[in-house]
């Protein structure tokens, strides 16, 4: 396979030289009847180049794929289940406590639970623990609201040195921004669907 690649590379080099030659011919032929002729040749040359490049890429990527390690999916899923489950259980405990101790209704209690998870995550991020949890838990620590909190606080910490405006102000939502934007848009869209169905 190596030898074939070398041949393709040589062919590509020749085509590129031809391309340079054609471009200069095309400039000379500007405004004459020959112009279209050179345009066609250039186009043909570029298509040929792209095809060889594509062939080279495919060969290489094929050989790269063979050595690419497979992610340990079962282990990752188990870790995610463990960490995500623990975060959600903690939230549920807060909800039950609020309901039992203060007689709150479910909506208020779940609000308090979300805020609690966000604050605890923010503190864990600040003291440098949450990134370790995230490395272990993967999606389990990203998907709950704690992931959202972590992405905002970590961005704020990272860009603190660039100042309050262009640092924290401008960069705090770099990771969470897309979630906020598309989350809001999705809820507007679903609200509309809900309204029309009623």
């Amino acid at each position: 396979m190596g030898r074939q690649d070398e041949r393709l590379e040589e062919e590509l080099a020749l085509l590129r030289e031809e391309h340079a030659h054609l471009v200069s011919q095309r400039v000379l032929a500007e405004g004459t009847s020959e112009q279209e002729h050179y345009d066609r040749l250039l186009q043909k040359n570029e298509i040929q180049c792209a095809r060889i490049q594509e062939q080279l890429n495919q060969d290489y990527q094929q050989s790269a794929k063979v050595v690419m390690p497979k992610p340990p999916i079962v282990r990752n899923v188990w870790h995610a289940f463990l960490v995500g489950g623990m975060i959600c259980t903690a939230g549920q405990i807060v909800i039950l406590l609020m309901q039992e101790l203060y007689g709150m209704d479910f909506r208020s209690a779940s609000g308090i639970a979300s805020v609690t998870v966000v604050i605890v995550t923010a503190i864990l991020t600040g003291i440098g623990v949450y990134d370790e949890i995230g490395r272990f838990g993967g999606a389990g620590s990203m998907v709950p609201i704690s992931g959202f909190s972590n992405s905002i606080v970590s961005a704020a910490l990272e860009w603190k040195a660039s100042g309050m405006i262009y640092g924290i102000g401008a960069k705090i939502f770099t990771i969470a921004g897309p979630v906020i934007l598309y989350g809001t848009m999705a809820s507007v869209f679903l609200g509309l669907v809900y309204y029309l169905l009623q």
Binding site: P69, T125, S154
Partner: peptide
């Protein structure tokens, strides 16, 4: 990390490659 990927304190799982 800050420049090319994610904030350093963000909890992400890195790909094996």
């Amino acid at each position: 990390e800050q420049q090319l990927r994610y904030p350093t304190e963000m909890g992400v799982q890195r790909t094996l490659s």
